[in-house]
Amino acid sequence: MIKSQENAGRLGAADRLLVPVEDAANLLAACAIFLLMVLGVAQIVSRTVFNAPIEGYIDLVELSMAGMAFLGAAYCQRIGAHIRMELLVGRLHGRALWAAEIFGTVVGLMIIGVLVWYGGEHFWRSYTLGDSTIDAELPVWPSKLLVPVAFSIWFLRLSVQLWGSMRMFVDPQRDPVGVIFVKGAAEQAEDEMHDAMGGDIDEGEASQSGDGK
């Protein structure tokens, strides 16, 4: 059993390494949301009070959408927030459960892998062939670059979860490391409630990430 502990150790380390990256990315998305609020108010004031709308406001908003839309994706994955139907998976236990987890994660890895690569090509085209926004003619490539960057983090998180699920599939009695606990509908509802209450809870409660306690 020494080997498996070693495995869990390395898996745990990979998990711990990824957590601050995901948090930082989500925090960036959060900042983008806050700035969108500030920019919106500034636009109203500047336009209605001074008759001088902010040049390229719509372009700026559109470019910043990528930050809000993608940077939090890996964070969502870690805490199991991406929507799925729990009707069947919620009833599974042991190996069957981990098999379902492995299947779902592999599907995720496939599509996110494709999107890292081809989202990257989409960025590369706009970087090399030239691309600018409709109004203020701002360059588009920084915004498009966020897709391969954010999805790479997502891909790594999915890899950790795949590793964790396979480890559990081999021996369901082990302490789970680097996986999401499948929640029953009631637990999912509890998360919704915590969400509604905002930050009154430590996010660690919602996931089994971190050191796997």
């Binding site: 062939l129 030239g130 691309d131 600018s132 926004t133 409709i134 003619e137 360059p139 588009v140």
Partner: peptide
């Protein structure tokens, strides 16, 4: 053309 000036200068 004007949807993406940078693509077709």
């Amino acid at each position: 053309n004007f949807y993406h000036p940078g693509r077709n200068p």
